[in-house]
Design a protein around this nucleic acid. Structure first.
Ligand SMILES: [Mn+2]
Ligand SMILES: [Mn+2]
Ligand SMILES: [Zn+2]
Ligand SMILES: [Zn+2]
Lengths: 142, 142
DNA sequence: TCTTCGCTTAGAACCATTCTTATTTAGGAA
DNA sequence: TTCCTAAATAAGAATGGTTCTAAGCGAAGA
């Protein structure tokens, strides 16, 4: 399970017929298991030491490719796109104080596409929920 | 009710001690009752004919002021900030095809801040729900 | 090994938003 | 009504995130 998780993104790239370049492998590795929902810039900063010539375009291209093949998903939060390696249906809790974004698992038994008809004729494909508030650490600090 | 709605934003500006400039009144008027969740650019384009010298800065300043005094709310969608004159708690349905954003009223009886504890220690202040799917018009066209 | 098309890079371009500064003006005071 | 001044506007520069472009590079199949 841990091993298969480590290779999930690599396998996805391979299955899609995309080349396994060192940059892509490093980006996939950096994103795998990362629960902080990093931005492109953050991943770039993390990888720059190892790939001093890496370009932002490569970061965006790879993340875009991974998104297209469902290896990750994109979140629009705080004026920037954030990348999430967790592609199972789940929600997010955002701290208004420190900006941290944490995963929130669905209530067990809650179908990912339950929720009653929002608008007549609107076909719901999925629901994104964002809990806004104060995280445990920030609440304690105050 | 219609009249009071027409003046809601103007009253809010007045109560906050902000000056009632022609630009602000026009922006408030343009936003009032607008259910399309327009961007700053869209409002600018709509007002440019009447105020040929209006600056984007004025649009952003006014919308920022209105947001601060709870005259409207901001939504982050599709890579741009959208402005919503409806400040009552409600959700949104976004069409993946045409990008239209429609209001979705809360289920009657659904407290705006119900929903069980998402994370231990996280204090939920509000929940934002986005229904993603295909709107009635786009579904029919296909 | 060779070849080729996909990939990476650097930097320009683009777009939304914010900032800066000079000028104008709303609205209270006289 | 006129005057005064803090607040607001306009123009454009600056910023920050993201995408595009063009030239060289290299992964991987033959
Ligand atoms: Mn997540
Ligand atoms: Mn709305
Ligand atoms: Zn926090
Ligand atoms: Zn549609």
């Amino acid at each position: 399970m841990v091993l298969s998780e480590e290779h999930r993104l690599v396998d996805a790239l391979k299955r899609a017929g995309l080349k396994l370049t060192p940059q892509r492998l490093a980006i996939a590795e950096a994103l795998t298991g990362d629960e902080t929902h990093p931005t492109a810039q953050e991943l770039y900063a993390r990888l720059k030491p190892r790939f001093s010539s890496m370009s932002m375009a490569t970061i965006y291209n790879t993340l875009g490719a991974l998104t297209k093949i469902r290896g990750c998903r994109e979140l629009e939060m705080g004026g920037a796109t954030r990348f999430d390696p967790n592609v199972t249906p789940h929600d997010h809790a955002v701290c208004e104080r420190c900006g941290a974004i944490r995963d929130v698992e669905l209530e067990s038994g809650e179908a990912p596409d339950s929720e009653p008809c929002p608008l007549p004729g609107f076909q719901v494909e999925r629901i994104e929920r964002v809990y806004r508030g104060v995280c445990a650490q920030c609440a304690e600090a105050a």
